[in-house]
Design a binder for these strands. Structure first.
Length: 453
RNA sequence: GUGGGUUUAGCUCAGUUGGUUAGAGCGCCGCUCUGUGGAAGCGGAGGCCGGGGGUUCAAGUCCCCUAAUCCACCCCA
């Protein structure tokens, strides 16, 4: 095939597609988003949608000019051969904070809980769970700075993941304190490492100026040896009194609510506008030490993009990574429901009657029809392959009598039903079927779990 | 950006020390089969062997380049 999808993107495919894996299943994506929506809206979050491209300047300030995302992973948007000064969004928070400020949302009851879902873009080299266009579910709370807000945000993220059925997740919780705390810590790290510059890896030497905290989770063995020898004190030891009390309070709430977490000093955020609470959600099934998602408090962000200060906290998880984790756990997904009825004509002249019967049935149930006449055997086979509960046949007898011949493809029971009664009859049959099989989709014949590699 | 693996039919894959017209299973379409299916049998469609260059009498097979893809590093969701 001559034209292929752009590097680092995925098609989300319908059920039954040959190369289907969970992370590429359109239905699985929809299910994750729908599950998240249910959990978040129960908690009072409201949907917000912002453009997939924004002013480059917003993204630079919102994400941070020193990050890899801004330095080398931005998709710039051009139009009419001209440079638009826009970029495809690499994450959701900056756009949401911008929309909050621009549209005067601070007059809504505060704190305001918002959620969204959509594609994000980073021009990276792809690997497992890392795409150039990927999808996030994003939750943000603006206008609240109480430790309760933080704890609730973390608890909600865990709830979404639990509701999806994932078990092997760990919350790694940290705090980066207030700006003066972090400044003190960075000074401490620079003073500590500078005398040993020649022993640091190239990467870490770079980190020493850009983001010293990153040295601590260096993959280099030599770096780790040095860190151990220097007996480096963790960020948490540098928290000021207020940040310390806040961190303790967040942990207290989580323990009260039974939300499990591990305090992990390696969870750090290098950007100036981050404050206090930061966390990541991890799963061993996702490749390359990747997080399923992460979150943090960003009280300094609104000022960073030129507005008055608004406290905020938020998290996002990668839908693809969640699906990879689900696949790793062998979690079954609800399968797509097939039609309740598949209507076929036995003679060419009756095909329009079959179509009309299906259209009428759609007033109550999912209904499809064959576009040409079929022999009964083929009609049943086709109906079965579409996952239908009933096949309906219209032959000359039925056409004369104004009926259809209905066959339950599971039980082989047959019914002769008046066309005028068909919608009500099928609705009742579907209900009976759902009652018989609680919690399972009306499509048991179709594959429920996709192949693991 | 760095390193490694892979690439043959819609899918999963065979294809010998280079040898004539490139195969299998599954899937798809049709027939056996004009009023009751899932089976079976038979038949059919479907390939520039990722692309380009080279070596050779001869390349799916050997060499070089390139692309795509997967994995890891960096970083992140």
């Amino acid at each position: 095939m001559a034209i292929k999808r752009p590097k680092g993107t995925e098609d989300h495919l319908p059920a039954g597609s040959p190369k289907l894996t969970l992370d590429v299943s359109a239905q699985a994506h929809g299910w994750v988003v729908e599950t998240a929506r249910r959990v978040l809206e129960r908690a009072g979050a409201q949907r917000i949608d912002t453009p997939v491209f924004e002013e480059a300047d917003l993204v630079k300030r919102g994400v941070g000019g020193s990050t890899d995302i801004v330095r080398k992973e931005m998709f710039t948007v051009y139009y009419f051969g001209d440079h638009g000064g826009y970029v495809l969004r690499p994450e959701g928070t900056a756009g949401i904070v911008r929309a909050f400020l621009q549209n005067g949302l601070k007059q809504l009851p505060s704190p305001l809980k918002l959620w969204t879902h959509g594609p994000m873009f980073r021009a990276e080299r792809q690997q497992r769970g890392r795409l150039r266009q990927f999808h996030q579910v994003d939750y943000e709370v603006l206008g609240g700075s109480d430790a309760l807000v933080d704890a609730e945000a973390i608890a909600l993220m865990v709830s979404v993941v639990r509701e999806l059925g994932l078990t092997g997740v760990r919350v790694k919780l940290g705090s980066i304190g207030d700006p003066q705390d972090r400044e003190a810590y960075n000074t401490y790290l620079r003073d500590l490492f500078t005398p040993h510059l020649e022993r640091l890896s190239d990467d870490s030497r770079d980190r020493l100026t850009r983001n010293p905290m990153r040295i601590l989770d260096s993959k280099s063995e030599d770096d780790q040896t040095l860190i151990a020898q220097l007996n480096v004190s963790p960020m948490l030891n540098f928290l000021g009194d207020e940040a310390r009390a806040n961190f303790d309070a967040v942990q207290g709430y989580l323990r009260d609510w039974g939300v499990e977490f591990d305090v992990d000093p390696s969870v750090v955020r290098g950007l100036d506008y981050y404050r206090r609470t930061a966390w990541e959600l991890h799963h061993e099934g996702v490749g390359a030490k990747s997080a399923l998602g992460g979150g943090g408090r960003y009280d300094g962000l609104a000022e960073q993009i030129g507005a008055q200060a608004v406290p905020g906290i938020g998290w996002a998880f990668g839908v693809e990574r969640l699906l990879i984790a689900l696949e790793a756990e062998g979690r079954p997904l609800p399968a797509q429901a097939g039609p309740v009825v598949y209507v076929a004509a036995l003679e060419d002249r009756l095909v329009p009657a079959a179509a009309a019967a299906a259209l009428a049935a759609r007033s109550t149930v999912r209904a499809e029809f064959a576009y040409r006449s079929l022999k009964p055997g083929n009609a049943f086979r086709d109906a079965e392959r579409r996952g239908a509960l009933f096949a309906a046949l219209i032959g000359s007898e039925e056409a004369t009598a104004g009926t259809v011949q209905l066959k339950n493809l599971r039980s082989a029971e047959q019914f002769t039903v008046l066309l005028s009664d068909l919608p009500a009859f099928l609705a009742a049959q579907e209900q009976a079927h759902l009652d018989l099989t609680p919690g399972t989709p009306a499509h048991p014949a179709s594959p429920v779990i996709l192949e693991n590699e």
